[in-house]
Amino acid sequence: MTTPALRLRPGAGRQLHGGPVTFVVLAVAAIVSLFPLYWTVVAASTSNNRITRTPPPLVPGANLAHNLKEAYTQVHMGTALVNTFFVAGSVALATVLFATLAGFAFAKLRFKGRSLLLMLVIGTMMVPPQLGVVPLFMLMGDLGWSNQLQAVVLPTLVSAFGVFFMRQYLAEALPTELIEAARVDGAHSLRIFWHVVLPVARPAMAVLGMLTFVQSWNDLFWPMIVLNGDNPTVQVALSELGQGYVPDRSVIMAGALLGTLPLLLVFVVLGRQIVGGIMQGAVKG
């Protein structure tokens, strides 16, 4: 039997120690997960000649700078990186703001039709944006927004997952008494949002912001339709590279590396927080 103190934390008492087999299997999983990324670096730093020889290269070569430069110039990678930072950054900011507002309302404010509206939010997750691309494309053409970044940003300003995520978090983390106390002091709900909700919501907002940023950074279908090669996002530029505009494979890999590196750096720094955030969202979702 575990002690009563331990039993308050579900699952904690059951954590058994893993044996060497566990360790080896996990190590293999880690290698399989990381090897393609390592090999991206290897391929990006060798030459087309070296890649097309057996056995394939397993250690980095000396051509990294040259290949990066090639990839950078061949497909407007510089523009693509700036564009993608702008798109993913504004999408993440807007999603977090709107999701926190709506999550606050769904978690802590009483209004008619609240649970019905929340059901609707969850239901919209079943409608992937892919299904509406034809009229969206025509709409953007009519607005004169084809090949402009707002055409990518605007449709993704909100996310149903985000609203649900923030609602679940605030329902638990935000004490209702805090809100009532602020009300008694005469604060209006927007003031309460600013001074009471935001400080409490900050950790969940950070996680949601990161997840949204990653997702927006990696989005391919819609950007590919509405943008062209002159004003691409990173993924659009990468798909141009991949579809044969550049014959040199090590340059293609350098492009892939360039487009992935910013996210990988975030991952190296904040990996544990991201893992924690996904698990938190999972338990509550």
Partner: peptide, 8 residues
């Protein structure tokens, strides 16, 4: 094991 998820 989560790292591949950050790759596009």
């Amino acid at each position: 094991v989560l790292t591949p998820h950050a790759t596009s």
